[in-house]
């Protein structure tokens, strides 16, 4: 019963949401609106709470053990200070909250993201090798794309731009479409398996 009941609830709710999403009937619309506007937000709020509590717990335990103490303290100060700043001075332009966001969070995240360029540089030198015919074609296509997305592409003949566009609209798009169709079919199959009770891993391990 402990496994059958959640499965039943999941299947029935899943089926209901499936029907109301595609139906234009006023009752279906009303259910759809209530579920998306209220229920999902409540679920999100609880998920957020779990995340915050878990983040605080793990970091407090780490501080106790003396692991990366400084970083963990900074993380916790950040977690507490942002809502406090927002609650006291608001979130409008010129508020301390926005100042911290613009001058601490944005530069830090942009810096971390910019590190990708250095990984690409390193990989270009040490990893991107034309070890086979397909690898050579892939490298060539990548170089054409890189040139076409820079000023140099404009200095070359129109045929070069056409060729870059052809790569984007044919081989690249075909591959992307295949991936998207694969993802779609995979999602559909998994959803159906969950609704029909064939997929039960989300319930956790069965106790013997």
């Amino acid at each position: 019963m402990r496994r059958k009941f959640p499965q039943l609830v999941c299947g029935l709710i899943g089926l209901l949401l499936f029907v109301v999403y595609f139906s234009r009937h006023p009752i279906a619309s009303s259910i759809n609106e209530t579920v998306t506007r209220e229920y999902w937000q409540i679920v999100f709020a609880f998920a957020l709470l779990v995340g915050v509590v878990s983040f605080a717990k793990i970091n407090l335990q780490g501080i106790e053990r003396g692991e990366d103490r400084l970083y963990r303290i900074i993380s916790l100060v950040g977690l507490i200070s942002m809502p406090v700043l927002a609650l006291i001075w608001g979130i409008g332009t010129g508020s301390p909250f926005m100042w911290v966001f613009d001058n601490v969070q944005v530069p830090m995240q942009s810096t971390v993201f910019a590190l990708l360029a250095f990984f690409v540089a390193s990989a270009s030198l040490r990893g991107f090798r034309a070890r086979s015919g397909p690898a050579f074609i892939l490298l060539l296509a990548a170089m054409v794309a890189l040139i076409s997305r820079s000023d140099v592409g404009d200095l070359m003949s129109a045929r070069f731009s056409d060729f870059a566009e052809w790569i984007r609209s044919n081989p690249s798009m075909s591959a992307r479409r295949a991936i998207l169709i694969g993802i779609g079919l995979g999602s559909l199959t998994t959803s159906l398996r969950v609704l029909l009770g064939l997929e039960r891993t989300w319930l956790g391990k069965e106790s013997k």
Binding site: S124, R129, L139, L146, V152
Partner: peptide, 23 residues
């Protein structure tokens, strides 16, 4: 920022060619 992107792209291309020559 386009000039910076252009030189970065060209730099990556040079590194790819250099890496393959060495390989």
């Amino acid at each position: 920022a386009m000039l910076a992107q252009t030189v970065a792209h060209l730099y990556v291309i040079v590194l790819i060619i250099l890496g393959n020559v060495v390989y």
